[in-house]
Amino acid sequence: MEYFLELFFSGLTRGSIYALIALGYTMVYGIIQLINFAHGEIYMIGAFVALIVAGVCTIYGLSGFAILILAAAIAAVYAAAYGYTLEKIAYRPLRGSPRLSPLISAIGMSIFLQNYVLLAQTPDFLPFPRLIPDFAFMDDVAHIIGSPELVILVTTLITMVLLTLLIKKTRVGKAMRATQQDLNMARLVGINVDRVISLTFVIGSVLAAIGGVLVASYIGQVSFYIGFLAGIKAFTAAVLGGIGSIPGAVLGGLIIGWSESFAAGYISSDYEDVLTFVLLVVILIVRPAGILGKVRKQKV
């Protein structure tokens, strides 16, 4: 039972991070029907910037939980800046092009950003400083759920609540929902669609960066390559839950987190990464709209 709980929480932790990244995919797809392939790279850049901030601070003698928050804040700012620039350079000039064009552009961007970080920094894994302390009150349950996991879960929960409030309660959120329903109609009623799209990229990127920082401090290392696999898994989560649907992304993330964690714990970890793809293929064949997604009839 304890082993089960341990796997349960580790799956929950992983899953909530996939969910954070998946939100970026889902929000962008909901508005411009594009798989933002470079989203995983934004997550990676977020993690890397956090590593740099945290690394510089620890090397110059600072340390502690406050550094993590500082690193996360700076990482979020940079991820947002990268996400914004990415959309402006690689996607905006391609509005109205054939469907394949922005997709190929996105793949190109993903390759570019990966190699940019590889060349600018290092091809190796870098250890991430340990900044999350072991909370004393967690001692009793530490063998099931550790302090870093608790931090991740709490942070994710807060982020999700804030995001929901943003989308449901604010003017900006309303504009985003309108644009998602019908982009042209939103433009007609005076919504600045370009700004909404930019904003969507910025929000998605911030979420990815938060996910990146949490993963980096949890797993304890970062490399230029982490965005690729995490990106695909998060995308799968988005599809699983129903692309375009925000609760769907969370649900999908959790399902993938748990299935990975239990498969690795009870079966074997050899095929851990493949499991996601198998899930993806099965979902797309059985229920292409995802668990919570709506089937959109194509207009003829």
Binding site: F48, V49, L51, V53, T58, I59, Q121, T122
Partner: peptide
């Protein structure tokens, strides 16, 4: 951060 600073942790 990526092109100017290079941290080796």
């Amino acid at each position: 951060p990526l092109l100017v600073v290079r941290v080796n942790t």
